[in-house]
């Protein structure tokens, strides 16, 4: 069994704060890890260290028993048996689609009929068989993306790295490419590390989501876990839509809060008790005749429902969904069925 292990990984480019600081995580074999975070959080540097383009200043990267990189040594990228989909796709403009896809095979000395068969299989998987003899310049963005993916597929790499692969595609193509990635992951069985700043992409694809902020790993968990039980305001604010409320709570209050506790906390007078951050998901704010009367400050039609913004008695904003429009300024009764102390 081979896991990809990052151990106290640190990268300092020499400009104040390290780009990556003490990141430790393990990707299980065949896992699909999404590295999520705002731009500049160090997620791309982690990816490039994994590929071998950057060497860690401290800490190490191992694949199973094998040491890939540490501060003293680094196995060069060409010896790692990894593959990568670059943000710019990195297709070689002077080669045809088939030559691009088959290049890793050619370097490994595969030629002739075997080469043609393997390239053909890879192209068939991304539905580009008819485009084999074209140059990358003659393809659309989504097609280029699929060529880059086929190139990763062709040599059965141990680890596939994806650097914001959907960033340059339009909304419609993103959805269909997400599906292609999922199939790709199932078929290849490779360990995948996927860098993105789009949380919905991360949630849809990954078996594990790691959230980074300012060079540090904040939390790593399965998508449903990280959505339901985020750690701290960074993860709480980044994953899903939600309102982070500051409400007075006792020191040993439980993490999961129900309506009675929340009602007491929201309704208490300002300045009472110690204030703590509580995450409230909009789907947990429901119209309830027995609930609290809250003023609607915004009501936006989103197609499948209305997105409401409500004002708490002390003025904090609370997001909610509604089935019907409620005029701005009007009060309505709502209950918050659950909240999560961050």
């Amino acid at each position: 069994m081979a896991q990809l292990i990052l151990n106290h990984l640190t990268k300092d480019f020499g400009g104040g704060r390290p780009a990556v600081s003490d990141v430790s995580l393990t990707v299980r074999e065949g896992g699909f890890l999404a590295l999520l975070g705002p731009s500049g959080c160090g997620k791309t540097t982690v990816l490039r260290m994994t590929a071998g383009f950057e060497q860690p200043s401290d800490g190490s990267i191992d694949y199973g028993e094998r040491r890939l990189s540490d501060a003293a040594r680094a196995l060069p990228p060409e010896k790692r048996n990894m593959a990568m989909v670059f943000q710019s796709y990195a297709l070689w403009p002077h080669m045809t689609v088939a030559e691009n896809v088959g290049y890793p095979l050619k370097v490994r000395g595969v030629s002739g009929e075997t080469w043609r068969r393997k390239v053909g299989e890879a192209l068939a998987l991304v539905k580009l068989t008819d485009y084999a003899e074209r140059r990358p310049a003659a393809l659309s963005g989504g097609q280029r993306q699929r060529v880059a993916l086929a190139r990763c597929l062709v040599t059965s790499p141990d680890v596939v790295l994806l650097d914001e692969p959907l960033a340059n595609l339009d909304q419609h193509l993103r959805k269909s490419m997400e599906e292609t990635f999922r199939i790709f992951h199932e078929r290849s069985g490779a360990t995948m590390v996927y860098v993105t700043h789009d949380q919905s992409e991360a949630m849809a694809l990954a078996t594990d989501v790691a959230v980074m902020s300012e060079g540090r790993l904040v939390q790593m968990a399965a998508p449903s876990e990280i959505y339901a039980r985020p750690e701290g305001t960074v993860v709480g604010g980044l994953i899903g839509r939600g309102s982070i409320l500051k409400v007075p709570l006792a020191e040993h209050a439980p993490r999961a809060l129900a309506w009675p506790q929340l009602r007491e906390a929201i309704g208490s007078a300002p300045g009472v008790g110690h204030r703590r951050d509580v995450l409230v998901r909009p789907e947990h704010v429901r119209p309830d005749p027995l609930g609290m009367a809250l003023e609607v400050t915004a009501c936006v039609y989103e197609g499948e429902r209305f997105a409401l913004t409500l004002a708490l008695p002390d003025g904090q904003a609370l997001k909610a969904f509604g089935d019907t429009a409620i005029p701005v300024g009007q009060k309505a009764n709502f209950a918050v069925v659950s909240g999560w102390r961050l």
């Binding site: 590929a51 071998g52 383009f53 060069p76 990228p77 060409e78 010896k79 790692r80 048996n81 990894m82 593959a83 990568m84 670059f86 943000q87 710019s88 990195a90 070689w92 290049y103 890793p104 370097v107 490994r108 190139r151 040599t155």
Partner: peptide, 17 residues
């Protein structure tokens, strides 16, 4: 684009290759 060379490295190509 520097990633053109990086992609070749990950494909297994050494410096001269």
């Amino acid at each position: 684009d520097p990633s053109l060379e990086e992609a070749a490295r990950l494909s297994g190509a050494g410096f001269f290759r």
